[in-house]
Write a protein that binds this DNA or RNA. Structure first.
Length: 425
RNA sequence: GGAGAAGUACCCAAGUGGCUGAAGGGGCUCCCCUGCUAAGGGAGUAGGUCGUGUAAGCGGCGCGAGGGUUCAAAUCCCUCCUUCUCCGCCA
């Protein structure tokens, strides 16, 4: 959510910046009128409330002195009726304004390149060598089948499309990656480990920005007002919702493993084979709460932590600076890390690292105080995948495949895989 | 799921309609006393948010949340949430 005061005082400027996202922001035109109306209603009711308060005191005084207060009581009766009417009107205006504000996206940072879609994203750096195969390289779903690492067909029977059973070494590889990443971020990068709830309530989904605009992307638990989390970002960022933190507690850094659930509404027909686009997938997520002045440095650091995983696994990747048109609703700046996938003959997103500045903190009301006397300020929140596990499995299988159909296990994972060197029949 | 109890400020806690727009204590901050520490004495301590104002300030809201009754609600009524205890069920 944007700062209403800032929006009020720089309306045209903010509008122009938002316009770079290429989204329809015509709704924003109602802002000024609503804001004006709200403030004038507040002034009117508060004036009346002040009157009611003083008269109430006078009534109390007269009653104590056993004097007659009828005339005052009659007046207050009328004043209270007016207050009630105005309060109802104010409540409606505030609700309308709030709903409007919840649907306004974040302002892109100045370092975000202008562009319309993913074609305009800017490559920041590239790492590793793209493998060349002296044989016909297979896609991970073919390898998974031959090496009996996954069962997509039976998962469709048991649940539906876009679900998978990992089996045997497939399941072991997935679990090895979770543990490897958790250990790396916890032991080497200084993140505290969390294992969050996989369902969250309506307020949490609103806090991180999934609601109200993207309700159709999430799975909802009927009759409970709970949602299956699309990412651990949601429960972890909402950990401190409606709280005031101490400056000396910042930065806070958490790493959380969770399963993630996405309806993939609007993705019908895309990435239909293999692990790339599932309704349920595993992910290790990094979340940071920082002081405003530290957030851009923190974004670089966090992105580096995610990259480190790919470096240790020796998987080729590139880092993209998302352009204004491909930023997503909540981010002020976002880097996507894309891993090389031989079956796509292209780089494919494996991590998304974002600085939300105070956008989520405002929605979720996460604040901090610099010291006892200072005003509260909103923290800045960041997060990034470190990494998406399923896509990492796919990348390892495809990049590490051998001529004989086996898959070499990256060295750093071997301690998690009984020190085996290869996955083979 | 059933039955009960409770939610008041940083913590504990008093408070069944109007000098409670929240007593008292602890803690915390400052000061005094003491060679230091402990003990003791004094003062301060509603955080937050919204409106208004260049500002000092002024004003509105606030006792788990939301409604209602009343001229007036922490206090009365309704709904909900959370926590605790017991029973049932369960990994």
């Amino acid at each position: 959510m944007l700062d209403i005061k800032k929006l009020r005082s720089n309306f045209q400027e903010v509008k122009e910046k938002l316009d770079k996202r290429g989204e329809d922001i015509s709704e924003l035109d109602k802002f000024e009128e609503l804001d004006e109306k709200r403030r004038s209603l507040i002034q009117k009711t508060e004036e009346l409330k002040q009157r009611r308060n003083t008269v109430s005191q006078e009534v109390a005084q007269l009653k104590r002195e056993k004097k007659d207060a009828e005339h005052l009581i009659k007046e207050t009766k009328e004043v209270s009726a007016d207050i009630k009417k105005l309060d109802e009107e104010l409540k409606q205006v505030e609700e309308t304004l709030h709903q409007l504000m919840l649907r306004v996206p974040n302002i892109p940072h100045e370092s975000v390149p202008y562009g319309e879609d993913e074609a305009d994203n800017e490559e920041v750096r590239k790492w590793g060598d793209i493998p060349s195969f002296s044989f016909d390289a297979k896609a991970h779903w073919e390898l998974a089948d031959e090496l009996q690492m996954m069962d997509f067909e039976r998962a469709s029977k048991v649940t539906g499309s876009r679900f998978v059973f990992y089996k045997g070494t497939g399941a072991k590889l997935e679990r090895a990656l979770i543990n490897f990443m958790m250990d790396l971020h916890e032991e080497e990068h200084g993140y505290e480990e969390l294992l969050p709830p996989y369902m969250v309530n309506h307020d949490s989904m609103t806090g991180t920005g999934q609601l109200p605009k993207f309700e159709e992307d999430a799975f909802q638990v009927k009759e409970e007002d709970y949602f299956l989390i699309p990412t651990a970002e949601v429960p972890v960022t909402n950990l401190y919702r409606d709280e005031i933190l101490q400056a000396e507690d910042l930065p806070l850094a958490y790493v959380a493993y969770s399963a993630c659930f996405r309806s993939e509404a609007g993705s019908a027909g895309r990435d239909t084979r293999g692990l790339i686009r599932q309704h349920q997938f595993n992910k290790v997520e990094l979340v940071r709460f920082v002081k405003p002045e530290d957030s851009y440095e923190a974004l670089e650091m966090l992105t580096g932590h995610a990259e480190k995983v790919l470096q240790m696994l020796d998987l080729p990747y590139r880092v993209m600076n998302m352009c204004s048109g491909d930023l997503g609703f909540t981010a002020a700046k976002k880097y996507d890390i894309e891993v090389w996938l031989p079956s796509y003959e292209d780089y494919k997103e494996i991590s998304s690292c974002s600085n939300f500045e105070d956008f989520q903190a405002r929605r979720a009301n996460i604040r901090f105080k610099r010291d006892r006397k200072s005003k509260t300020e909103f923290v800045h929140t960041l997060n990034g995948s470190g990494l998406a596990i399923g896509r990492t499995v796919a990348a390892i299988m495809e990049n590490y495949q051998q001529a004989d159909g086996s898959i070499k296990i990256p060295e750093v994972l071997r301690p998690y895989m009984r020190n085996k060197e290869y996955i083979q029949k």
